[in-house]
Design a binder for these strands. Sequence first.
DNA 1: GGACGTCACTTGTCCTTACGAGTTACGACT
DNA 2: AGTCGTAACTCGTAAGGACAAGTGACGTCC
Lengths: 259, 259
Amino acid sequence: MTEIQRPGALYQQVAAAIREAILSGEFAPASLLPSEAQLMARYQVSRPTVRNAIAALRAEGLIDVRHGKGSFVRSEPQPVVSLLGHVGRTPEAHFVLHGVATWEQAEEPSTYRTHATEATAHLLELEAEEALFGCDRLLTDPATGTRAMHRTLIPFATADAVPDLAEAPETKPATVYAMLAKAGHELWWSETVRARMPLPDERTALRLPDATPVLHLSRVTCGTDDTPLILEELRIGADRAELAYRITADKQPARRTRS
Amino acid sequence: MTEIQRPGALYQQVAAAIREAILSGEFAPASLLPSEAQLMARYQVSRPTVRNAIAALRAEGLIDVRHGKGSFVRSEPQPVVSLLGHVGRTPEAHFVLHGVATWEQAEEPSTYRTHATEATAHLLELEAEEALFGCDRLLTDPATGTRAMHRTLIPFATADAVPDLAEAPETKPATVYAMLAKAGHELWWSETVRARMPLPDERTALRLPDATPVLHLSRVTCGTDDTPLILEELRIGADRAELAYRITADKQPARRTRS
DNA sequence: GGACGTCACTTGTCCTTACGAGTTACGACT
DNA sequence: AGTCGTAACTCGTAAGGACAAGTGACGTCC
């Protein structure tokens, strides 16, 4: 049995003791922690207290718990997917965007019609409620099992101007870029990044473990005259992905980021 | 009293019912939810079950709970800080990086000496354990109360080559860029973005509410010959910040992102 | 030998009870 | 009138018990 000290609630003291044991290396990464019963004996507390402490450590992302097996120290969350943000000058380099070149589609893409929300209307410079084509994909990296949700939103105006697009709205992003370029547009992109906790459906679709945020990218592809052409969204578990951007001090397009 | 349906555990059914009520607008943003006692009566379950359901909604970031007052629907997490990643051609535009121009320092910056970890050594192309100057800042946006943690790591080699730096390692990033440029470097930056749950000390330092990830930026400033000069890290609550990048298809520096 | 069932272990769920602690409003006392 | 204490609400913490459900190993049965 191990004595416990001061600060705060009992379960927090237990959580702090376990956390310290993990960080000090007493419990190695991927190793099995003592069972709830053992922790009860070790710290002389009831089972709800132990479970409360464990819940706190789960919320911090320090441990993983598996029903029927036990609690495991989570190993370092090493990102395996690197999403590049700055492209080269050749058209082929566009494929690197979002790193989707090597990915497979876990399901058939689903296409639909929808309407612009306030946020999407602002990004695409549309009226609210304006009609859009939509296409959702579930992407998989077969090597690592990493999953990502990808969505393409195409305003009717863009589809009208680029007939190829209207015929096949489920086209892959890289192909979409090529179509837009073929239609005479000189492309650039405006990308915003946010992180948040996943909604329940995202948790299941992306197979996310506990306490794992999602990275949410919104990318607007703009063409000649800085016209917003399409909007893409990518959602991916932050335990597997990191973003990489190159920033150079060269000339900057005139369009503002936000009003 | 409201009847509950099938799927899964009782507390999950309760959580789903409350979540649905929130998303359907029955409980408006920032409004007070029924108390635990009322929820017990409404769904005919015990208090632990209600609390378990509430804990699930907290972990999703849907609600905020305040001791002695009640549970509140969390209002839309509108980011108030926009961190720009693509700079203009004029030197002044460098100040926009990280959006720190308008920020104040909540505490005096603390400077210290440390050693390169495996990760920082890789980013700065150093040997492991190599000595570094460090400088930590706690930044505040007085208008919104948003906080951010900023760290600058300067290898000895860079400090030797730029005497201004060695004399005042606590200099602000914008000034550091100016010093490096004055020393004859043509600067560019390599930035990687990750999101994760905050450590306990980050939670308190950044005053983060429940279920709020942190955005973790690592920015390497490179100079002539693509030499890594300094490493900056910025940590900021994802409920208040979003990143914005412009991506153009112009020429790309030769340096690789990762090995 | 192989398949299957059982058992001992784990965590998950759910209940009851009790008290501590923060918040607010009302009312009595000064 | 102003101040302060108390009461009645809120959520937080802690204990106890009971049973369900997933896992793996061992042993029995075919």
